[in-house]
Nucleic acid binder design. Structure first.
Lengths: 124, 124
DNA sequence: GCAACACCTGAATACCTGTTCATAAGTTAT
DNA sequence: ATAACTTATGAACAGGTATTCAGGTGTTGC
């Protein structure tokens, strides 16, 4: 085992009591599943375009669709997914529905990913 | 206190010169695509289990496979994807190949997602 | 050399995902 | 009430993805 005696508060730790794994520090199937579901939602370019539009302020579904150049139906489907993951919230006003980003987590995730992607190729 | 009409280097801004969009601040198709590709890699539970194993220190492919209870072939395929996204690096030692996490971005992403997922249901 | 070992790769298959299309539900205006 | 409008939803289809299986490369040890 070549791991230092340092207590890093991260993945290697399993605070979940429900872990059914060997208990080595590997993510439980359940936690891994939830992680994957969450990041999977961010694994679609159109959802990022929708989120980036909402980052500018709240939008109606219709305007959103126009902005990202998608059908309203497709946008509505995607918004449902984003709602499920609590990435967006909405308020109804008459026959319109205004969506907006729910919290700042998405900003941090964007920034972190962006930094990673902007790193030099570091030729192999 | 989040953001107003300030120049925040975030989603709403498009520093990419190649943007073919209306220029409203929506992510360019290219940037959105790269974001999606990156997060898509994190959209698989088994890859998270591999990453969490590597968070404990470097592992051979074989041991990794045993740890996450996958076939060596499947793990090798996944490692290739993780390598492509520069999430892991490796060193060859004889007939063994030791993999480890490349940088700390994955830790921050994990933490951010975990915080988000741990937020209260906030009943609608 | 030859066999065992560790890892990688390509093709095939089963599964999941996102869009479109048609339709329904709810709201506003005439 | 009827028509126009905005959004939501379900089924179906196309495209993408992860695994398995079979085979390949390179290394260690007899």
């Amino acid at each position: 085992m070549t791991h230092e005696t340092h207590d890093q508060p991260s993945i290697a730790h399993t605070p979940d009591p429900e872990s059914s794994s060997p208990g080595q520090g590997i993510l439980s199937l359940d936690k891994a599943q939830r992680m994957a579901e969450f990041f999977g939602v961010l694994g679609d370019p159109n959802r990022w375009r929708i989120l980036s539009a909402l980052a500018m302020g709240e939008h109606r579904v219709r305007d959103l669709a126009a902005a990202v150049e998608m059908s309203e139906s497709a946008v509505s489907h995607q918004l449902r997914i984003l709602r499920t993951m609590r990435l967006v919230s909405y308020r109804k006003r008459g026959r319109n529905v205004f969506y907006c980003l729910k919290d700042d987590h998405i900003f941090n995730l964007y920034r972190e990913a962006s930094e990673h992607l902007d790193e030099p190729p570091e030729m192999d």
